[in-house]
């Protein structure tokens, strides 16, 4: 079953949860073949009841120790712009759509999402444009994300500090 995993990180992002569970957005997802929707809603006050959504398999939770499994099972990840979530999703090799919270002031977390968008590693939208983006997005433009190379750091330090 094609799955979408939505994650808001450690805080809350009610607008995103409301928008993704709107009739229009669900229709757009269904049209693309996504049948299962998993929502990580954090501290949010919007907690959709799966019984109200008979046409889609819906799972909702606030927090888990690790969301690695949810990421692994997803075909598309929709995430807030937090650096940790973005890197985890890309590290799992998944298609990623970042939804920017335009109600928050520009914070430095956005810098990374913007750069990764410039480098075509993720798609980027806001809540009001989410449904339209789900309809029109082209996931084939996304470039694979090469993980960072901490070994280069270790090699550099070994040499600089005189280790044999």
């Amino acid at each position: 079953m094609k799955t979408v995993f939505v994650t808001v990180g450690t805080t809350s992002f009610d607008d995103l949860i409301e928008e993704i569970t709107s009739a229009e957005a669900l229709k757009a997802l269904k049209y693309r073949g996504y049948e299962r929707l998993v929502l990580q809603v954090g501290r949010g006050s919007v907690l959709p009841d799966p019984q109200n959504f008979p046409h889609v398999t819906l799972e909702v939770f606030r927090f888990k120790d690790s969301i690695a499994k949810d990421m692994e099972q997803a075909d598309l990840i929709i995430s807030h712009a937090g650096a940790g979530s973005c890197l985890e999703a890309l590290g799992a090799g998944k298609a990623l759509l970042v939804v920017v919270n335009d109600k928050l002031m520009d914070n430095h977390q956005l810098e990374l999402a913007r750069q990764l968008h410039t480098d075509s590693h993720l798609l980027y939208c806001t809540c009001p444009t989410l449904t339209e983006t789900l309809r029109s997005m082209d996931l084939s433009v996304l470039q694979p994300f090469v993980p960072g190379q901490p070994k280069k750091f270790a090699n550099f330090m070994d040499k600089a500090l005189g280790l044999q």
Partner: peptide
């Protein structure tokens, strides 16, 4: 490094900072 072992003091922050520094630490011998 010339004397053999290097004594390391690592400042871990919270959240993302700790994640990043532990990833770097993972490759140190």
């Amino acid at each position: 490094g010339n004397k053999g072992l290097i004594t390391l003091l690592v400042v871990a922050g919270s959240g993302g900072h700790t994640t990043e520094i532990l990833r770097l630490m993972k490759t140190l011998s």
